[in-house]
Write a protein that binds this DNA or RNA. Structure first.
Lengths: 207, 207
DNA sequence: GTCTATAACCTGATAGAC
DNA sequence: GTCTATCAGGTTATAGAC
């Protein structure tokens, strides 16, 4: 049994968790080391003991924040037994699940792409995102070549998909205010919108 | 003729211009009063003389930043002699023109919607944005009711349109890296994408 | 109206006691 | 390994000379 004072690795995990939540909710620039320290229930110097600088601290958690997305989506995309159309729908479901747990994740990523794009690229490489993208690309291209799907430039398919997926979450204040009807809540609208994305992508791919 | 030392209103305009550009390019949180002072060629205290706080300074220029969008779009939307489908296309052209001059404007607005939504609402009210939205909404609804256009929920039309319009600009680093082919530049891709948006919206409205 | 000087505070980061 | 004390530098903001 460990002594009460020394919680080796335990506190580090606590700090990481506090940093993860604070950075995710406020973004890098709006987060101070004090914010994280308060959330972790310790003081700033201890933070610097574990992660020397703010930038290192951020680096330590950024991967795990973005990484929350990957496993769920990965499992679906690699299921080549499922037709690609159905897979696209399942991918949206997976993203939606994660974003409902972490509604601020989409805006967080968009801001980071702007703030420190090199780190985003590095993280994407570590997570092996290229593999998944290639897999989707290949799956779609095969069905396009065999005539099952309409020939659509791959990049515009991706851009359409991610545009429609991200914007309602990234601008939820505005969307909630402008586009949620009376007697309806934001989640109701989001659910309808999900179906709309699927139908839009399907229409693009089949007509 | 005014004396050389006293440039009443002149310096204020210079400060506003410096603030406009700095806030637009770096966002609120990443901009300091020093940054603006340097850009305006004066020192900080003078900034505070004209606009007591950073928040007030921002408020003074936010309207003019967003307002750059309104007049061009407004003129098009109110042209009820032009069929709404054509008007949508012209609106995209207008947005594109502004965004090519100010590529960081879309992300700036998205970030502000998150940071201080109340100010966004206030500004939108001052600019009379409701009028333009209602005008578009009415124009579309008329043509839907008369059978010229397919019945599509208005909100999803707006969300599709703005999603596809904003994301390539807001994530230009990523899009440039992932989606620009060899021997092509970002602007080439953007131009193709514009045509794609128009066709996507048309397809949504006519099939 | 614009400057110098400075207040009051917060930031990230380090040294050193325990 | 975690704390107190402290640093240098940057932040917004104000007081007061000119």
């Amino acid at each position: 049994m460990a002594t009460a004072n020394h919680n080796t690795g335990n506190l580090e995990q606590k700090i990481i968790e506090a940093a993860r939540e604070t950075f995710l909710n406020r973004g890098y620039s709006e987060t101070s080391m004090s914010d994280i320290a308060v959330r972790a229930g310790i003081n700033r110097p201890t933070l610097h003991y574990y992660f020397r600088t703010k930038e290192r601290m951020f680096g330590a958690v950024f991967g795990s924040i973005v990484g929350a997305l990957v496993p769920r989506v990965k499992d679906i995309i690699l299921r080549s037994d499922i037709p690609i159309g159905k897979r696209v729908q399942l991918v949206i479901d997976a993203y939606y699940e994660v974003f409902k747990e972490n509604p601020r994740l989409p805006l967080f990523i968009v801001k980071e792409i702007d703030r420190d794009y090199d780190n985003v690229v590095r993280t994407a490489r570590e997570l092996g995102l290229q593999t998944y993208m290639d897999s989707i690309r290949k799956g779609l291209q095969d069905e396009m070549d065999s005539g099952k799907l309409r020939q659509v430039p791959m990049r515009y398919l991706f851009m359409t998909f991610y545009s429609m997926l991200i914007i309602p979450f990234a601008t939820c204040n505005l969307c909630n205010n402008l586009f949620v009807a009376e007697g309806e809540c934001f989640d109701d609208m989001l659910a309808e919108w999900k179906a709309y994305i699927v139908s839009a992508v399907e229409r693009t791919l089949t007509i």
